[in-house]
Deep mutational scan, measured.
Amino acid sequence: KAVLCADHGEKLQLFCQEDGKVICWLCERSQEHRGHHTFLVE
């Protein structure tokens, strides 16, 4: 069962290295995470 983003309802499948947390693809494109290094997690 996928864990969903509290903000967007999308699957949490990216790890943001700068923030040390898992985010969704919409979070990654938001101003908050712009320019951060993210990695796909399974």
Results as ranks from 00 to 15, higher is better:
K1T: 06
A2I: 11
A2W: 10
V3H: 04
V3M: 14
V3Y: 08
L4D: 06
L4A: 07
L4E: 08
C5N: 00
C5A: 00
C5W: 00
C5R: 00
A6C: 08
A6V: 07
D7M: 13
D7W: 07
D7R: 10
D7T: 15
G9T: 03
G9L: 06
E10W: 03
E10F: 11
K11N: 12
K11D: 14
L12Q: 11
Q13G: 10
Q13H: 10
Q13W: 03
Q13C: 03
Q13N: 15
Q13P: 06
L14Q: 11
L14K: 13
L14W: 15
F15C: 12
F15S: 06
F15G: 09
F15L: 06
C16A: 05
C16K: 05
C16P: 03
C16T: 01
Q17G: 04
Q17R: 10
Q17T: 09
E18R: 05
E18Q: 08
E18I: 04
D19S: 04
D19C: 15
G20S: 04
G20Q: 10
G20W: 04
K21R: 13
K21M: 05
K21P: 01
K21Q: 04
K21L: 05
K21Y: 11
V22Q: 10
V22E: 08
V22A: 10
I23E: 02
W25H: 14
W25I: 11
W25C: 12
L26M: 15
C27K: 00
C27G: 01
E28T: 13
E28C: 02
E28V: 07
R29W: 02
R29F: 03
R29I: 06
S30D: 12
S30R: 07
S30K: 04
S30E: 08
Q31G: 09
Q31E: 08
Q31M: 10
H33A: 03
R34Y: 14
R34F: 13
R34C: 08
R34V: 12
G35D: 12
G35S: 09
G35V: 03
G35Q: 06
H36M: 02
H36Q: 05
H37A: 13
H37V: 06
F39V: 14
F39L: 12
F39S: 15
F39M: 12
L40W: 09
L40I: 11
L40V: 10
V41R: 14
E42V: 13
E42R: 15
E42A: 00
